[in-house]
Design a protein around this nucleic acid. Structure first.
Lengths: 253, 253
DNA sequence: TACGTAAGGTAGCCACGCCTAACAGGAGGT
DNA sequence: ACCTCCTGTTAGGCGTGGCTACCTTACGTA
């Protein structure tokens, strides 16, 4: 899928791994003035032998100046690429850590893996998103308040804004009714499970039936069936869909 | 880096490629009722032989029901994984295409490559972002207006909001002054170049010197020097940093 | 019945990126 | 001088995931 040719010129796309090496070298040169095989190996979590291989390849592609047993330097082309990669990294790190409030460990990991797989246009637009929230700190504050609400402590301080007139909890639905997902206010494993099942905002849900006792309910969503405990359905905010509201005043909402 | 063991149970993390196969099978079953080797190969852009190999591996891991020369089915575990993967795909596609307004081709491509490289927490937070903008359509509208402004047609309909009292254009800086980047309003290749150089919002810039004629200017940013044409610097909105403002009233801004 | 064709499987090859093991050179201690 | 430690290189091996080339199976039809 990555398909590297033997062409050494800069037109050839680099594999993720080699891009990582470039990034590591750049970082080391900035921090410690020189980049040595040992340090690159430690930074990247590989053996020195692997670094030697990689340096030879990067040397052939004209991205690093590599003479055996000497300090490793980046060529101008390599430096250019390194900056590009590091910008992506920074940008994604900002996005995950500072905007989405992903934990430090995961935001670093996600930034690392995603940075190789993003088009120039994607980077460009992400920068715009950055600019947007940088220019409108009050809007970023609102978003962060929303993200923080319910993510850690409190269960109900965040009040659902009035955006949908027919809003209800999924547990309020009657068999035969349809609704669209507004917000999944569940936490932890339950939330993860619902998301994994395909429950995203705007997903259409059809309540097929309820158990006689009313507790497990069966819903249809994106073509497959799913049973839910009432307690789980309680935390899912939905918006009733008129076309399917057969009984106008039955929903207690 | 991916390191698959021979363990067939579901605890083992799948490689990107195998995850793609699962996704493709799921898609084909939904669309055409059955998944055949030939169709999977076409969808994934590989030869049938490669699909055969992959099916054997997935069969060993208990994710697909694979009997030679018969239709390929997903086991319950496989279906679960498939849904998870497709949710990621959908989510990222929404993010790139509908929120960031990345072009159709690139948003699909980015979603495809990024979907394998995102932690559960990253997915979770991305869903929250989705919920946020879904619940606050007026805020999403503002963001989209910002993203669209200058991205395609107009050069100056978007007015920089008053968020920084000392705002100026980068071209207004005097040698010796420092500033922080607010927004890069350049377009196309120039914007790309500045971003690649590491110019993100909040980046600190120091104007080292100007050419006698004033046109090329040299700035220092993140430890390296960079020369800019005045026309390029004109489109970069910055915020002066007080500590470095030696001459209080010189900046015309 | 025999045969052609298309779908699919098997074997063997290669690139990549990692590994371990063994070897090479230089700096300092004795 | 010699030994030792540390750094780095080379050689060879392995798993993954592609590929080509060839074989098998099923099926339709002359």
């Amino acid at each position: 899928m990555v398909s590297l040719g033997s062409d050494n010129k800069s037109g050839m796309r680099l594999s993720e791994s080699l891009e990582d090496y470039i990034e590591a070298i750049h970082k080391l040169i900035q921090e410690k003035k020189v980049a040595r095989v040992k340090d690159i190996a430690r930074l990247k979590g590989v053996r020195m032998a692997s670094v030697s291989d990689a340096m030879r390849k990067l040397g052939e592609r004209g991205l690093v100046k590599y003479e055996a047993r000497e300090y490793i330097e980046l060529t101008p082309e390599g430096t250019e690429l390194a900056r590009k990669v590091r910008v992506r990294h920074e940008l994604l790190h900002w996005f995950f850590k500072d905007l989405l409030r992903v934990s430090a460990v995961n935001s670093e990991k996600d930034a690392c893996t995603v940075e190789h797989a993003l088009s120039d246009e994607g980077v460009d637009k992400l920068v715009k998103l950055y600019e947007y929230f940088h220019l409108h700190p009050e809007r970023q504050k609102k978003l962060l308040e929303f993200l923080d609400a319910g993510s850690s402590s409190s269960n109900g301080p965040y009040v659902l804004p009035t955006v949908c007139t027919d809003k209800a909890r999924l547990s309020d639905l009657k068999p035969g009714q349809s609704a669209k997902v507004l917000q999944i206010r569940s936490k932890g494993a339950v939330r993860q499970r619902l998301i994994d099942m395909g429950m995203l905002p705007d997903t259409q849900i059809f309540l097929e039936r309820k158990a006689p006792t009313g507790d497990p309910i069966w819903i249809r969503m994106k073509g497959f069936q799913l049973s839910l405990r009432l307690a789980e359905a309680d935390d899912v905010q939905v918006c009733l869909i008129d076309a399917f509201k057969d009984s106008p005043s039955e929903s207690e909402a």
